[in-house]
Design a protein around this nucleic acid. Structure first.
Lengths: 137, 137
DNA sequence: CGGTATCCTATAAGATACTG
DNA sequence: CAGTATCTTATAGGATACCG
């Protein structure tokens, strides 16, 4: 996990990721939505692009000049649970953070992150432990 | 989420949290398992205790002098999904990190974090979006 | 609009040494 | 074993100004 964390860099990366997951695509919008300044946003976006979490792609608004926009890649989308887990915890224990929810796109049903066994059974948080990857002797 | 991130502090907090979730309880063991130095571990532990994520409790080994140990609180345990989400992503996309798995304590069955709807249906990652807390107009 | 450049301050964290 | 103290380097990130 260490290298993963080092790669992601500072926690503000997660703010950018959160907003990308919410649909923010343009530089200035990231500046506003994250509350970070331009230099920081630029640095975070670069890092996330270099990690393959965001893709910078040209984007043509009819009649206007071409722009670049930053969109979540599939790899990036797979990192969103980290943000959701953080928000779920924050909602419970840190009266702060703007209200943001995870919902199923097609139905608008709220979803939460839960532990699920291979057989599809939802497992309670208290029953989960972390173990070394090798089966326990 | 911003305040939550600021409260947690640097990403190394998550290393300490990971190891606490794995069962590490003693100062020196945290130093070894996280790979951080003593000063850093001391700072992280203090912060996590002050956040109510870890509890520092006396601990008597028969015949030996009393020690303190750091154990996950319930609040701390609820933060573990952040670590698990990070590990899940790292396993897929960052060939690094020691192998660590989340398992159900009673059965040793591996579990993964998934999005689950209120009705208990597992929802695919690609179908989840983040929205503002207020219902969409 | 979408950044880059510069300056500044605070924090992170390694190394090393020391203490109860 | 469980830290504290000191020093040093690197990075984060705010403020401000500037550019195509």
């Amino acid at each position: 996990m260490r290298k993963t964390l080092d790669a992601l860099g500072p926690l503000s990366s997660l703010l950018v990721l959160r907003d990308a997951a919410e649909g923010t695509r343009r530089f200035d919008d990231f500046v506003v939505s994250t509350g970070l300044n331009e230099a920081t946003v630029a640095a975070r976006l670069k890092r996330l692009v270099s990690l393959g979490i965001l893709a910078k792609t040209p984007y043509a608004e009819a009649g206007k000049r071409t722009r670049d926009e930053y969109v979540l890649t599939e790899i990036g989308n797979e990192l969103v649970p980290v943000v959701v887990a953080l928000m779920q915890w924050g909602d419970q224990h840190r009266p702060d953070s703007g209200p943001m929810r995870a919902v199923e796109r097609s139905t608008d049903e709220p979803v939460t992150l839960r532990y699920v066994s291979d057989s599809g059974r939802v497992v309670s948080e208290q029953d989960v432990v972390l173990v070394e990857g090798r089966p326990i002797d």
